[in-house]
Nucleic acid binder design. Structure first.
Lengths: 207, 207
DNA sequence: CAGGTTACATGACAGTGCTATACATAGCAG
DNA sequence: CTGCTATGTATAGCACTGTCATGTAACCTG
């Protein structure tokens, strides 16, 4: 009996929100509805309100990131792949800093476990490959190691986005931090250092 | 000739803003002015607007943190002191998570260099002590090493505050990450590990 | 004590997210 | 194919936000 909601409107709202975010324009309920050619109520039927919209934007951003990281073609060196994954992660974050902030907005509330989870799983898999290849100690906890790599990368990225440090600081220090982490996971420091060569720069140019 | 602004009103506004932040109450211009027993214009004469108020709150938070970290009494092991500094940093952040978010709010704009700078200087000094004591390689860049330790700690803290990971994850992984970093700075891994013992837990209890 | 300058009070304005109500439309029952 | 019903959407208003123009009163200087 019901009239079905138009999923196109939903996608348009999410896309427009991300676009205004990227353009550093204020993203407001009325502005979004006008741009989408609908009324403010559409946001409530589809998302239940602005927080719900932000939640959907965040989920979409994580899905895009997971897809982006997932389609990287692995080389014969799993540690090099790990470093390349980190590089892609940083590039994504610094190319869309406002979207990255929404992804990690503290006012986001608990999300579906598959939002950030699937993205994190990509990293865990990459770590597991390094373990299986014997580069990391067999006793290494893949999830724990992935969490540590994620945390250090996230920290540098956040400091860059909040302008506490410069982008050059990130390019200078992330390789060194990664090498130290890899060594801590039982990798040969020399091999770890070799795996990092040629990965930088993390981003081609400023936007 | 002029009528001088009351610095007491200024301090009261900053303190009330921080208090409402800690109480997780919405901090609005009118609510603040009412609680401070003044009018909304006081915020404009003292801070030029709400962004200026947030800026002042952030500066005050950094000053408090620098003072808190600075009055830690050094032991005979500079690396242990470094770890203790990190522990105090984490405790401060997780005890006042909303204030921590304001300190690193991306919409804060460029701040006076002495705001976060003096806090960071405390960490640089602690690293320099480890270098002078021969625990870190003499070739170690004190500022660079401090930045790396800061970034990894900040990353873990932010992930905890945004509820991407749990507080127990931080307690579990920060020591390991620090040990790996210390080793990368040239410290003996065994000595590094010994320096970390007894530092955890980073926070006594949940708030 | 007078003058001028400034902090602070009042009120209005544009904008925000949210929601109660009215309307239009899509889908199923007959 | 018709009519009912359930649902998405439009409209308008509410309470709230930060900002600023104006007015008043207090202060310091000369």
């Amino acid at each position: 009996m019901p009239k079905t909601a138009d999923p196109d409107v939903r996608d348009r709202l999410i896309g427009l929100a991300a676009a205004r975010l990227a353009a550093r324009q204020p993203v407001s309920l009325r502005g979004l509805a006008d741009a989408a050619g609908t009324s403010t109520m559409a946001v409530y039927t589809h998302f239940g309100g602005m927080p719900g919209l932000w939640h959907a934007v965040r989920d979409a951003a994580f899905a895009t990131l997971a897809q982006e990281l997932g389609r990287m073609s692995p080389t014969d060196d799993p540690v090099t792949d790990l470093m390349a994954t980190g590089s892609a992660y940083v590039t994504n974050a610094l190319t869309h800093p406002d979207l990255y902030l929404v992804m990690f907005d503290a006012r986001g509330g608990p999300d579906h476990p598959d939002s950030a989870g699937t993205t994190f799983a990509v990293l865990v898999t990459a770590v597991q490959r390094a373990i299986d290849a014997g580069r990391f100690a067999a006793s290494t906890d893949a999830e724990g190691a992935a969490l540590e790599l994620w945390a250090m990368t996230h920290g540098l990225v956040m400091l860059v986005i909040t302008e506490a440090i410069g982008e050059d600081d990130l390019n200078r220090h992330l390789p060194e931090m990664a090498i130290a982490a890899y060594a801590g996971f039982g990798d040969d420091p020399v091999a770890a250092r070799r795996s990092v060569i040629g990965i930088v720069p993390f981003r081609q140019r400023s936007p």
